Every structure is written in structure tokens, then in C-alpha cells.
Simulated scan of single mutants.
Amino acid sequence: MDEKRKKKLEEAAQSRSTDTVIDSSSLIRRHVKWKMARMKKIGQMTSEAAKEITEKIDSFEEEASQGSFVAHGRQDVLTVAIGRPEHPDRMGAAGVGVMIVTSQFL
């Protein structure tokens, strides 16, 4: 990974562009980490559900590379492939009080 980061930084320095600079925390995307966490050492997925979601992720990655899928905020490849928000319940602050917003109120 260090070699990839160095190469990207060198390319950015040569082109004098900040578009190609990638910080070390974003070298591996969330959906790739998700897939890696559910893959056995022999290359198989840990469950049938994980295999199905992996296939959806691969499909959305292909669409993203062609430009037909564009991630918007929290609606990234992983969230769309899984089919539900990562954290559906959140604390919300409005006015003077704080209330818990659950999915039943949305």
C-alpha cells in the first residue's frame, strides 16, 4: 500500500493536481473491506447471503465504472447492495430538546 500511495503522490506532484491525491484512510473502499471481511482464506464467502451481496456489489462497481451509478452521500455501493441504511436510528436535535428518531417515525 505504501508503494501505491507514493506513486499517487508522485503523479499528483508531477501533474500539480490535487484530484489524484488520496489519503491513506481511503485506499481501500468500504465495500471492498466488507467483502474481505466475509471471505474465507480459500476464496469462498462465509455465507450464501454474503455471496449474494458480493455479487450485487460487483454489479454496482461495474455500473460505477461505466458512470451509470453515482454514489450520493451515504448511498454508496455497499449501502445500496445491502439494501438498507447502515444506521437507521439516530439521535436528532431540534429546538431546545433532544429526541431519539427511530425508523417508525420516518
Rank of each mutant, 00 (worst) to 15 (best):
G83V: 09
I53L: 02
P85C: 03
V98Y: 15
S68F: 05
E52N: 05
H31G: 02
F60M: 03
A94E: 14
G97W: 13
G95A: 01
D2G: 10
I57N: 01
I53M: 04
S15D: 07
E62I: 06
V70Y: 01
E63W: 08
T102N: 08
E63C: 06
L27T: 04
R90N: 09
L27C: 04
Q75K: 08
S59K: 10
H87K: 13
V70R: 00
T46H: 01
F105G: 13
A50R: 04
L78E: 00
A12S: 04
E10Y: 07
G92W: 07
I42N: 15
V21N: 03
I100Q: 15
K4D: 07
M36A: 08
S68A: 01
L106C: 11
E55Q: 12
E11N: 05
G67C: 05
I53G: 08
L27I: 04
K8N: 06
V96A: 12
S15K: 13
W34T: 00
E62H: 12
R30W: 09
K41W: 12
W34M: 02
S17A: 00
K35W: 08
H31E: 06
K56T: 00
V101P: 05
A37D: 13
G95S: 00
L106M: 11
K51D: 01
K6L: 01
D58G: 05
E11F: 04
V77W: 04
A94T: 15
Q75F: 13
I22D: 00
K6E: 08
K7I: 07
G83C: 07
E3V: 05
S59M: 10
E48G: 11
D23P: 01
K40D: 05
K6R: 14
V96E: 12
K35T: 13
T20C: 10
M39Q: 10
R30I: 08
A81H: 03
T20I: 04
G92L: 03
G73K: 09
I57W: 08
A94K: 15
V32P: 10
I82P: 02
H72C: 14
K8R: 14
S24D: 12
V96K: 14
E48T: 12
K4A: 08
D76A: 01
